[in-house]
Structure formats: C-alpha cells, structure tokens
Design a protein around this nucleic acid. Structure first.
Lengths: 122, 122, 122, 122
DNA sequence: GTGGTCTAGACCACG
DNA sequence: GTGGTCTAGACCACT
C-alpha cells in the first residue's frame, strides 16, 4: 500500500509522508481512517519504528493527520487544503521548468508538444 | 558570477556544479574558457578550496570541463550534449508533474493556463 | 580483501574503486552485498574515512553500488554492464598495443606467441 | 612533429618523452640527430622551457639521448635497446590484459578475434 | 550505528 | 602559480 524504495536516495520517512499524502489526495484514505500502528507498519515494511514515528509526526504537523493518545493516528478532515497545496506546488514547479526551458532556447513548439502529447495519452 | 546560497540545504559543491553547468548551457562560458583557479574562487566565495576542487572534479567527470595540471580548468567543447541532456531532463520532469496533476484531478483548462500564462509573459 | 598498496603512485581511492569493481566483475561480491562501513574499512586499512568515502561515492556514481543513508553501501544489480564495459576496455587496449607492436616491426610469429603462450598456460 | 595534447591528462613532459622515443624506434630520428634546442622547441609548442628541459633530462637518463654542453641534445646510438625495451613492455602489458580477460570469463574465441581482426586489417 | 558535507592544513606533481 | 591527494576533526541527517 505504501510504496517504499530503499534504493531511492530520498529518505524513507519522506517517502512515507509523500506516499500517505498522495493516498489522501486521491481519496483512498478518507476522513477518520486509522493509519496502521507504528509498530505494525514497522514490521510490515521492515523499517525502524523511529522512522515511522517521524513520518507520522510530520503528517500531524502538516495537519494531514491527528493523533489520539493511546488510540492511534487518523486522517484529518481538511483534504481539500492538502489537494490545493499540492496543486500549487505542482504549478510552481512546472512554471519554473518551463521558464528554464525557454531560457536555454527550447522552441515553443517543442514545449507545447510536452503538453499535447500527454493530452493525447489520456 | 556563481550564485551560492549558504542557507540552501543543497550542498555547496552541487550548487557550484549546477551553476557552472547552466552558464555553459546558456553559452555564457564558451569553449576553452578558463574557470577561476580553485584557490582564487575559494577566496572569492569564502569557501574551502577542497569544496571547489570537488565541484571541478565532478564537472570534469561529467565531461563539461577538462583539467590541465599546473594550468587550470577549462570548458570543454561538447556543450551541445550538455544542453540536450538538460532538455530531456526538463521534459521528463514536466511530463511527470503534468501526469500527477491530472491524476489528482486538476482540470485541463487550468493546466493549459500554466502553459499559456507563461507564454503571454514573453 | 581489498588490496591497497601505499607505495603505488595510483591514488588510494582509485585503487579501492578498481579493487571493488574487479570483485564485482568476478562475482565475488554479489547483488545487495553490503560493503564494510566507511569507518570500519578506514580502521582496517589504516586509511582516513574521507578517502574511503570518496571511493564509495565514485562507485555509486558509476552505478556499481547504491547507498542507503543510515544503512550502508550495497552492490547494485547491473553487474553485467560493468563486466561488458571492462571487456570492451580490455579489447581496445589490447588492439592498440598490438597495433603499436606491428608499427615498430614486431614480427607476427612473436605476437602470436604472446597469445599462444598464455593459452598453453591454462 | 611532436604530438602534444594539452587536454591529455598525461603530463606534457611525459608526452614529449614518449613522442621522441617512438620517433627513435621508428627510425625517424637517427643516431647523432640533433634535437631542437630547449628554447626553440618551447616556442614552437608554446610550452614552458622547464618542461622541455625535464623531458630531455629523462631521455638522457634513459640513455636515449646524450647532451653536449653548449651544443645541444643528440640521439644516442643504442636504438636497438630502446626498441627491445619497448617490445618487452608491450608484451608484458598484453599478457596481463589477456590474463584479466580470461579471469573475467571472456571466451577464447573472442580473445583470438581481437588478434585476428587486427591481422586482417593490415 | 550509518553516510554526507565541510573546514583547515599539509604535501606532492606539473608548468 | 596551477590542480590532486590525504589527514584530522567537526557537524549534520538518517535509521
């Protein structure tokens, strides 16, 4: 369910955060869904529990989850915000990349193909 | 000339490599241009010479520069390859981002605005 | 296990890279084998950890190993490529040497003996 | 006449030594031929005179040339030795490479092709 | 514990 | 003067 790649140079805790965040955005994990316990997930993924703990703490600080002591970690209700934040992030990154592409002289018709080819792939 | 940001979490040597690579791609640094000496640049940027040395070594291993012992570091002739490589990298990243945007339900008209707004900025 | 010769003018980190690369090619080090830690190997070989680190970084950039932060360095899966690359390198070097030998007038029967003597040694 | 490549990582003085040595072996430079003066060659090749001086000193120490103070540097009479030395060097290198090739499992028929293809190229 | 970055300073080779 | 290697030691991030 959570895709973790140990060869990925990106830290595991970050991969976990991203993975859960995407599941929330896609609606796979709905409001008040309970995440697996730290220990259980650590077992399943063969990961140090501290690493899971760290990921859960980040998710909570981002407002994506809430913690009930003695109960567990649950998905929060503000999924819309998460989605909108991610949308903005993507938009910014795309615009920066397009800017750089134009700076180094990639012609407009090539750039628009990146956009159109994807469209035709749908 | 080389933008180094000490607060940037990206390592200094990597910032230097990227910075010089971009200058080469943009044609600011032409073939056989001599880069500042390791020690001199270390002074200018208030960076340890070893760090500069590391960046220069990476540039050489990438084929962007060549080194003449006792003389200095110079821009190589195959700038075209560097540019094409960067173009492909940008294309891949843009396509991945667009894919994710569509996955999370960003409507096509919004996506096309990212592209068009930039266009009107020219 | 790793042959390092301090009197060899070839840099230590390069000797280490070559040594490990050969072990991988020969199949002594198999996929996902964990290399000794930077600090441990530094102790064993009486070498500064930075030097080991440098060798490991080169191996990773060559695609021979992969690094998991906080875990260690491991042999990568594409050993075949490394072997093929080395084969081509050897072939090129042999052909250049044979070319030079013929240029300076070494007779064919002597050259073929280089080849045959080795054969009879098997 | 002397091929010097500034981009070659091999030091210039070494390139010069090799270049002259090969000319002697090929018989282009015969006994008692006078090499260009240090100053003149430095001018021609745009090289520091110290570098030329170093190369000439090595050639003399190898017995390939002799120096007459106030006159210049001349080719020695023992060309045969130089050639034989080079022959042995090539032989050793080829045998080492063949050994390694067999170690990493290159089949005999491939190895013999390296030898035969060259032959057919003559 | 692991790897990664950076500094300070020494020493060598090349030109 | 140039680049290249190595050491010693500090500090940070990840598990």
């Amino acid at each position: 369910m959570f895709n973790i790649d140990f060869r990925n140079p990106k830290p595991i805790y970050e991969q976990l955060v991203d993975s859960i965040e995407k599941l929330v955005i896609k609606g796979v994990l709905e409001q008040d869904y309970q995440l697996p316990s730290v220990r259980q997930l650590a077992m399943e993924l063969s990961i140090n529990p501290n690493t899971i703990q760290r990921a859960y703490a980040i998710l909570e600080s981002k407002g994506i989850t809430y913690t009930v002591k003695g109960k567990g970690n649950f998905i929060n209700s503000n999924c819309g915000n998460v989605l909108n934040q991610r949308k903005k992030d993507i938009e910014i990154q795309v615009k920066e990349l397009l800017q750089e592409a134009r700076d180094i002289g990639v012609p407009e018709n090539e750039i628009s193909q990146w956009f159109c080819v994807e469209r035709s792939n749908l």
